[in-house]
Write a protein that binds this DNA or RNA. Structure first.
Length: 367
DNA sequence: TCTGGGGTCCTAGGACCC
DNA sequence: TCTGGGGTCCTAGGACCC
């Protein structure tokens, strides 16, 4: 598959500091100022920090309290998802004008496959540049675009292009681009894996690349094989247009820990109603119901149960969740920090009443 | 510093079946 | 009496991503 003609041309588009940039677009007085979008309650975290705020060390997933200390002069804003979704749809339509093969990853990010719509990499690069120009002109927001032979490298390219850049990683540049990077820059290497790798003396991608596959597999299981491939810039996963979701969930962190069981059950039923509403909207029923509880010390427990008949009603979902919490979680007296309700093993509701094959002729249970 | 919310994928153990 | 082998399903937890 290394024939040049079989090489793929994959793009990745990523809006720069998206939520914060939208706020600066809609409120000109915020332009040039540090803007931090995230949860405003006592336990909120940062969703997005504008580049001005990043100068102060503020970054995603950081507790708001810390962001506040680092950059008290910033504008602190709650997210406005409906507005972000509007703009996200505009971007999606621009991509769909170019190719039907697009895969949205989140509101601010999407892959697109240019393999079929251009002959060579030079044409692909011109199209990627045009996509970027069209997105920026239409939305008046900056984005970064990466182009490469697979998804993993395309995403890395857009990251390296930030902010506001366009970057190609050509086949002959792959290794030189990857080698000097810290392993933590690779998708799939989070804090835990990075630490474990460091414990093995592996800090850069170059070192990871020269590590024996068997050793990686012994240490990390199937993940070791992925690491081995990532270090070489290999990734054969396709750009996949959206598929049905596998689970639906809602959870909430309380501003202060809640000790009242009646309150827990009220909250569970509210969360269950939200989950049910989404299931009904998407015409799905669930065969697995979960609850999630987080304790003041941040330990988390989940309990799930399988239900033979698919559920999508708020009342039933709520009752199952309440039962799971009452009888399967040792809540104790210290209260709870978070509660969640989830639905999984989803099936289209139209298929709910399909009869099972019973006593299929010839399907003997004997050996 | 004190940790959101919505997801996906993987692992490991146990039940159960033939 | 001292012990199979493979397969599937279920559950709980954890890493990771945006």
């Amino acid at each position: 598959m290394s024939v040049a003609g079989n090489r793929r041309r994959i793009g990745h588009l990523d809006m720069d500091a998206f939520f914060a940039a939208v706020e600066q677009l809609d409120r000109p007085e915020l332009r040039g100022r540090p803007v931090i979008v995230g949860g405003l309650g006592p336990r909120g975290v940062v969703s997005t920090a504008s580049y001005e705020a990043r100068e102060f060390g503020v970054g995603s997933a950081m507790p708001m309290s810390r962001a506040q200390r680092l950059c008290p002069q910033a504008a602190f804003l709650a997210p406005r998802f409906r507005r972000y979704k509007e703009i996200s749809n505009v971007v999606r339509r621009i991509l769909l004008d170019i190719t039907p093969i697009i895969e949205p990853v989140s509101l601010d990010e999407a892959f697109f496959d240019l393999t079929a719509c251009c002959e060579d990499i030079a044409t692909a690069l011109a199209i990627a540049a045009e996509v970027k120009r069209a997105v920026e002109e239409t939305t008046r927001l900056a984005c970064s675009v990466g182009l490469a032979g697979n998804r993993f490298l395309a995403k890395l390219a857009s990251e390296l292009a930030k902010p506001g850049g366009l970057r190609l990683i050509a086949p002959e540049q792959v290794q030189a681009t990857l080698d000097p990077l810290h392993v933590g820059r690779l998708q799939g290497v989070g804090p835990v894996t990075a630490r474990r790798l460091q414990g093995m003396g592996i800090v850069t991608v170059r070192q990871l690349r020269s590590t024996d596959l068997d050793l990686l597999v012994r240490t990390f299981g199937a993940h070791g094989r992925i690491l081995h491939r990532r270090a070489r810039g290999e990734d054969s996963s396709p750009v996949a247009c959206s598929r049905q979701s596998l689970s639906v969930s809602r959870e909430t962190t309380f501003p202060v820990d809640v000790t009242d069981p009646a309150r827990w059950e009220t909250v569970l039923r509210e969360l269950a109603a939200d989950v049910a509403a989404q299931l009904q909207r998407e015409k799905l029923v669930a065969h697995c119901v979960r609850v999630k509880a987080r304790f003041p010390d941040f330990r988390t427990q989940t309990r799930q149960t399988t239900v033979a008949t698919g559920v999508d009603s708020a009342a039933l979902l709520g009752s199952i969740a309440v039962e799971l919490l009452r009888h399967r979680i040792e809540t104790g007296a210290r209260g709870l920090r978070l509660l969640g309700v989830g639905a999984a093993r989803l099936v289209e509701s139209a298929a709910r009443q399909l009869p099972l094959f019973d006593d299929t002729p010839g399907a003997s249970r004997d050996r």
